[in-house]
Design a protein around this nucleic acid. Structure first.
Lengths: 250, 250
DNA sequence: GAACGGCATTCGACATTGTCGAACGCTGGG
DNA sequence: CCCAGCGTTCGACAATGTCGAATGCCGTTC
């Protein structure tokens, strides 16, 4: 691409590979995957190692992500306005709904979770901040898909037997999401779990994120697999409040 | 530096600047600080923007860290062995001590927090994972300083009136830390708070991190400002357990 | 124990790219 | 209205990044 720095793009591609796979990769694997000469990859990795973005395992010689990225990642969280505006509404939403709350935005064709409030109980939970989730199989993702102009994601893995993978099914679903103003995923991403999400708009009305709750399907839905209207209402109210904080007027 | 890719080093310097300052910087400020021509910085920023590491504010034209870094940062956490081995011991340590627990390692001349367990009560707390703390003014930092071969940090800000800033005072303190096998900071970083930390060793006995507790000084120390021996003991025990998990034999 | 294949790393030639001076248009402040 | 400083574009050219060839190491196989 003209006007950009090719070696920085290559370095970013290497970091994404390291983030997406088993954690550690050999120089040769990286070179093969990116179709680059080994000395080229070696120079890039040595530079990334020097700036702390990559570490090399002393025993195997393999490479992995480095500590400096953690600081950059959390610094990003500190300045992320979607997150800072959402925080005030996320705890009350978790309290009122009794479910886990997540806020997400689009990154690399998936949902990036930028804030996560645990379900207010003492079950074991893991923090999802920073994780990527599919757009087509989650409530957050369907909201983000519904309001963006890009095409449907080409890869639509069936996470459960209820995941919508067909283009027509998904398009119809997104039309419905736009009409209703919220989305649900009912055992489409995780068997036994359901979620409800609503759009967060920024200045000018553009959808900049989504806010949602998730929990066991029998808590989120009634006996006919329909999300409880009360829960839909409080999710939408909370998302609207965040939108107002962000300067949306619609 | 020969053998490394200069433009990647420059890109990393830009990202560190964005992480370290007020969050948003103008292209001109970055160019001045790094003594680079504006078109040079522009090309690097455009590339970083293309890969999601940087975003540009539509209104002011200023640049800030991008969402892709969050995913890289949390991916680093997922594979960080110091953290994965510490997790099992951190919760019990918080429970037994009744205090907040942090695990840290050295990054860019400071302490990088890689794990944090909240004090087990319902006071308001913020998650410190990814934050950087001073080496000279924290218990975690003093442990890390005591067992590394590098020189003392040149910048030794006085966070409180009790912070050790003199080279002789700090050197003497680090000798004491090595002798005792643990460190404390007693209102040296935060007025009203104290902390205790012990080294975590990796394979071969090298110190790869530190584990510590922190809380109100009147809970951590007795009336003569001495850390409670019971707390010192359980911190050291927990750190030794993590060390064993990491393959240290000492 | 020897041979082999594939690894990470180094070296140096050279072609490509990244750098940067000059210029431009825009915007906010005086 | 004017001006200073901004972000951005363009194109020349020097510096750098790329990569083929080679090397040494290590684990595996015979």
């Amino acid at each position: 691409m003209p006007g950009t720095v090719q070696s920085i793009e290559r370095a970013a591609a290497i970091l994404r590979m390291l983030a997406g796979g088993p954690g550690k990769l050999s120089l040769a694997e990286i070179a093969r995957s990116l179709d680059l000469a080994k000395p080229t990859v070696h120079g890039i990795l040595r530079t990334l190692q020097g700036v702390g973005f990559v570490e090399q395992d002393r025993v195997s010689g393999h490479y992995q992500l480095g500590a400096a990225l953690l600081h950059l990642g959390t610094s990003y969280l500190d300045i992320n306005e979607l997150r800072s505006r959402s925080i005030n509404w996320a705890d009350p939403l978790a309290a009122r709904s009794g479910e886990a709350v997540r806020i997400g935005t689009v990154l690399e064709g998936r949902v990036l979770v930028v804030h996560h409030v645990f379900r207010p109980d003492d079950t074991f939970q893991t923090l999802d901040i920073g994780t990527l989730m599919p757009l087509h199989a989650t409530a957050l993702g369907k909201v983000l898909l519904a309001y963006r102009s890009a095409a449907l994601p080409p890869a639509r893995d069936p996470f459960t037997h209820r995941t919508l993978t067909g283009e027509r099914d998904l398009s119809a679903e997104l039309t419905h999401v736009r009409d209703a103003g919220w989305a649900a995923d009912i055992e489409e991403f995780t068997v036994g779990e359901a979620a409800i999400a609503a759009p967060i708009r920024g200045y000018g009305g553009l959808v900049v994120g989504a806010m949602g709750i998730s929990g066991l399907v029998e808590r989120i839905c009634d006996s006919r697999y329909r999300p409880h209207a009360r829960l839909v209402g409080i999710v939408r109210d909370a998302a609207r409040a965040v939108s107002r904080d962000l300067g949306a007027t619609r």
